[in-house]
């Protein structure tokens, strides 16, 4: 059983849902990334997603794109990111990387998984790797007991959703909207029903991400999901850490996360 499987077994046992914040590694620097991951975990996050900056992230909206650009301007390298994550092994929450296939491929799939595992990372979300192209990486992940989290979107036909579910380990990442990352005021009205359908097809945990930013969203989605992923709303707050008062930013991120976690717990 992988670290992520254990987490969801435990959460499900306690009738709880996962809060999963996303932060960009190295935005504005790795020291801050360490600090913010500690804050987010202390506030009660179940798992943290760490974005590996990439030069051409086509699934990302302006907020996350800009965070990648800020990190890459400082010439951040994968090796330094993994070294930093390796120093966070005492965190109670598992870490997963959001990483482009371009990066995994360049390092070599075996090397990527080995290095991430070595750093204590529990799995990977590879947003530009489709199920048809995923066999090679999936086999390596399987061998290493490293979760390969695959995505389902509103445009994914139902038969295909089942196929993706069969090939996924850890949890299914259910993308809430047809579009790129970024906060939304409204989520699609069919979302809850659609996740509900997938829920009946698989025992895998289903976590919903993209667009989620308010306690209202959290209350709406918590009943059908095992966890909720919040990215841009957090990265937007972190954006001020480059120029402003870091402690104030950490406080604002923690308070924001705590508010969403409270909304998540209040219903479960």
């Amino acid at each position: 059983m992988s670290e992520i499987d254990e987490l969801f077994t435990e959460l499900r046992g306690g009738g709880k849902k996962a809060f999963m914040p996303f932060v960009t590694a190295g935005d504005p620097d790795l020291e801050f990334t360490t600090a913010v991951l500690r804050e987010l975990t202390a506030a009660g996050s179940s798992m943290c997603e760490v974005g590996i900056p990439y030069s051409d992230p086509i699934a990302d909206g302006p907020v996350i794109q800009a965070s990648y650009t800020r990190a890459l301007e400082k010439k951040i390298r994968l090796a330094e990111i993994l070294k930093t994550l390796g120093e966070l092994k005492d965190l109670s929450a598992p870490l997963v990387t959001m990483v482009s296939y371009a990066i995994c491929h360049r390092h070599g799939l075996e090397n990527y998984v080995a290095a991430a595992k070595q750093a204590g990372v529990a799995g990977a979300i590879v947003p530009d790797l489709l199920v048809e192209e995923a066999d090679e990486l999936a086999a390596i992940c399987q061998r290493e007991d490293f979760s390969l989290i695959q995505l389902v979107t509103p445009t994914t036909p139902r038969e295909r959703q089942k196929r993706i579910a069969e090939k996924t380990t850890g949890f299914i990442y259910y993308v809430s909207v047809t579009g790129i990352t970024g906060e939304r005021t409204e989520l699609p009205p069919q979302l809850v029903d659609n996740v509900g359908w997938l829920r009946e097809q698989t025992d895998l945990p289903i976590c919903i991400g993209f667009g989620i930013s308010t306690p209202g969203h959290v209350k709406l989605l918590a009943p059908v999901a095992d966890g909720l992923i919040v990215g841009s709303a957090i990265v937007r707050r972190i954006c001020e850490a480059g120029s402003g008062d870091r402690d104030a930013v950490l406080r604002s991120v923690r308070d924001y996360a705590a508010g969403l976690i409270a909304a998540l717990d209040s219903r479960s």
Binding site: I58, Y101, L151, T155, G179
Partner: peptide, 12 residues
């Protein structure tokens, strides 16, 4: 070649 894009685009 192949196809390395977000799942959202697969159907189209």
């Amino acid at each position: 070649g192949g196809r390395y894009v977000p799942e959202t685009l697969t159907r189209a």
